[in-house]
Design a protein around this nucleic acid. Sequence first.
DNA 1: CAAACAATAGTCAAAGATGGTCAGAGAGGT
DNA 2: ACCTCTCTGACCATCTTTGACTATTGTTTG
Lengths: 151, 151
Amino acid sequence: MQNITDIIEAYLKQILHDEKKIEIKRQEIAERFDCVPSQINYVINTRFTIEKGYFVESKRGGGGYIRIQKIVILDSHDLLDEMSRWIGNDLTEQAAEDYLIRLVNEQLLTRREAIVVQSLLQKESLPMVLEDQRRMRAHLMQTLLKTIKRL
Amino acid sequence: MQNITDIIEAYLKQILHDEKKIEIKRQEIAERFDCVPSQINYVINTRFTIEKGYFVESKRGGGGYIRIQKIVILDSHDLLDEMSRWIGNDLTEQAAEDYLIRLVNEQLLTRREAIVVQSLLQKESLPMVLEDQRRMRAHLMQTLLKTIKRL
DNA sequence: CAAACAATAGTCAAAGATGGTCAGAGAGGT
DNA sequence: ACCTCTCTGACCATCTTTGACTATTGTTTG
C-alpha cells in the first residue's frame, strides 16, 4: 500500500464512504499527491471500473471535473454477465426479444423500457445488411446490459 | 460550477423559473458577471438551445435586447412531431442527450428510460464513421419518438 | 430625407483550461 | 530474466473565454 495508485484509491474511497458521489478536479488531486495528472486516469481505470461497481463521468475544458459514484451491485450481475457471454456479437431480432422478456421477468427492466429497447433493435431501426444488422443489434444489447448495471 | 458559463446559465434559469420569459441586455449581463459580451452569446448558444426547449430572439441597435422563453408545448404529441422535424436525419450525441432530458422533463420518458436510450445512442454504441453515426442516431431517435407515441 | 453617428447584438478564430490516451520506462515479485 | 503492475510525459480532444471585426437598428444632423 505504498504506491501512489493505492494511496489515491484509498483517499477517494474514504470520501465515497461518506458521500454518495464525489467530484474532483484531476489537476488538484494530482498536485495534492504530487504526481502527473494522467496518474489519476490510471487510478480510475484500474480501481473505479464498472465491474468494481463504480460509475465515472467527466467533463473537459474550463470548469471540467471527474465525478465518481458508487453503484449498487445486484445479485443479477451474474445473469447479466451470462447473457453477455451468450450474445457475443451476433443477435437475431427474435433472440433479442427473448432476452428482453427475460430481463423484464427478472425485474431488471420495466415493460416500458423493454418496449423502447425492442423498438430500437428491430430490423426497421437498423438499416443495414442482415449480417451487419445482427452484429449491431448484439453490440447495442451489450451496451444495454452494461447500462442496466448502473440503473 | 465555477465557470462563468454555468453561473450565468443558473442565474438566467432561476429567473425563468418564475417568469415565463426574460429580456436582457447583453452588455448589462456581461458587466454584472464581469465578462466579455460575447460570453453571453456562448451561454445562449450552448445552454438555451431548441433541443433544451428554449426559444431566443434578439434585436440589435438602440434599445436592443435578447429575449429568452421556455417553449411550452402543451400537447405532447405535437412536441414529438416538432422534435422529429428538428432532428431530421442528423443528430449529434450532445443534441440527443438534450432531447432526452427534455423528454424526461415533459414526463414522456422516465429517467431510467432516458439513461438506457442515451447509452444506446452514444458514439461507443454506434461503431461506424462519424457521418453514418449521426444518421444512425437520428434514425434511432426517430424510432424512439414513434414508439413513445404508442407507449 | 439621406448621410453620418451611436448603440446594440452576432460571428469566428485563437488562446486558455481541463480531462483522455497511449506507448514506453520503471519497479516489484517469482 | 521475465512478467505484471505502476508511473510518466508527449500529444490529443473538448469545453470555455476573449477580443477583433461585422451586422443591424435607432438617432441625430445637414
